[in-house]
Simulated assay, not measured.
Amino acid sequence: MGIKIGCCGFPVSRKKYYGEFNVVELQNTFYDLPSIDWAENLRSEAPGDFEFTIKAWQVITHPASSPTWKKMRRKPRGDTSNYGFLKPSNENLEALRETVRVAEALKSKIIVLQTPPSLPYSRESVEWVREFFSKASDIAQGFILGWEPRGEWSKARELYDIIEEFGIVHIVDPFRATPHLGKGGVVYFRLHGIGGSEVNYRYKYTDDDLKRLHEIVSKYSVDREVYVLFNNVYMFDDAARFKRLINS
């Protein structure tokens, strides 16, 4: 169906970025959920056909012990122990509602949930993650929820069942894992560099890497919409090179 190429965040001025790509995954929505006014202004500034996907507010996926919480200017309300790890708590679900309101202002259709390696994998956590997505599907009705699990959850046997049951898009780095294709017509890749453990942000993709990526992406783009979002230090240049390769 097609391939959409972009970056995780704006690595250059927005004006320059809009001239090169037609999609971006916003990262500031993860660190400090912005206001509706900010989202509406950004939407009005961008070209009409430009697409924003958003990374969900970190309090939903990361516990208060996460170092990224220290970057938040606006602390969430309620008991901080109820946040993070996709717990089906009132606090997490309200944070998801706030994230959805920002997504609505941006006219986004995809919300990315990226869980840390520290998300426990146990019988108990399987049940609470399943309950979270059961409730999240109603809260985010009309949106596509994508989940990028890390650590033990990335290989959990229950992962595919949850993706199937709730129509979640399985987000992976295509050089590290193969996505489980659920019911939706979207494939979503986030590229974090080759080598290292789960990420290697300082990696610069070679021409051979991009040719291999093209081969991977082409398998899915026949009947699905494929998002390719680079998330490394050289993401703007690498994404632009990949775009030229796709268009050649």
Rank of each mutant, 00 (worst) to 15 (best):
V24P: 12
I5F: 10
E51T: 13
D173R: 06
V12N: 04
G2Y: 02
W147T: 03
V112E: 06
D161Y: 13
P117L: 05
G142M: 02
A177R: 14
E124L: 09
L145H: 03
M72S: 15
M72K: 14
L245C: 01
I246T: 06
I139Y: 09
G167D: 10
S137R: 15
K109S: 15
A103P: 11
V126P: 02
G48I: 05
V222H: 05
P63S: 09
F10S: 02
V59N: 01
H62L: 09
C7T: 14
R101A: 12
M235D: 07
G193I: 02
I171F: 08
E152I: 01
H170W: 05
L42M: 15
V228W: 10
E104K: 14
G19M: 05
R202F: 12
L229A: 04
F166Q: 03
G9S: 05
V228A: 01
R73Q: 14
S197A: 10
T68Q: 10
N82H: 07
I110Q: 05
E158I: 10
C7A: 02
L93V: 07
F230E: 01
V59Q: 03
L181E: 13
S44P: 00
H192R: 08
V226R: 10
Q141C: 12
R101H: 02
F85E: 06
I60W: 11
I216S: 01
G48L: 07
R97V: 08
W69V: 03
C7L: 04
R212M: 06
G6T: 12
L93F: 03
L245P: 03
V187S: 07
V24S: 11
E225G: 00
R224T: 08
D237Y: 06
K55E: 05
K87C: 02
E20M: 14
D238I: 10
S44W: 00
T68C: 05
V199L: 05
L119E: 02
W57E: 00
P34F: 09
D138Q: 11
V24K: 04
W38Y: 15
G6N: 09
M1V: 10
G6E: 13
I5E: 08
W57R: 01
G184W: 05
Q27F: 01
A64C: 06
W128I: 12
L106T: 11
D32N: 15
F133C: 11
F50T: 11
V126Y: 13
R77C: 03
M72C: 11
F133W: 08
N231A: 03
K183H: 02
E124M: 01
F30C: 04
I3N: 08
L229C: 01
D161L: 06
E127C: 00
G78Y: 13
W147V: 03
I36A: 04
E148W: 09
P116S: 09
R150Y: 09
R73L: 13
E131G: 01
K15H: 08
K204N: 09
W57F: 15
Y18Q: 04
P174G: 00
A240H: 08
V233H: 15
N28G: 00
S65P: 02
P174Q: 01
D207T: 12
Y31V: 14
L159K: 15
Y121E: 14
G142D: 01
E104W: 00
Y203G: 01
R123L: 08
E25S: 06
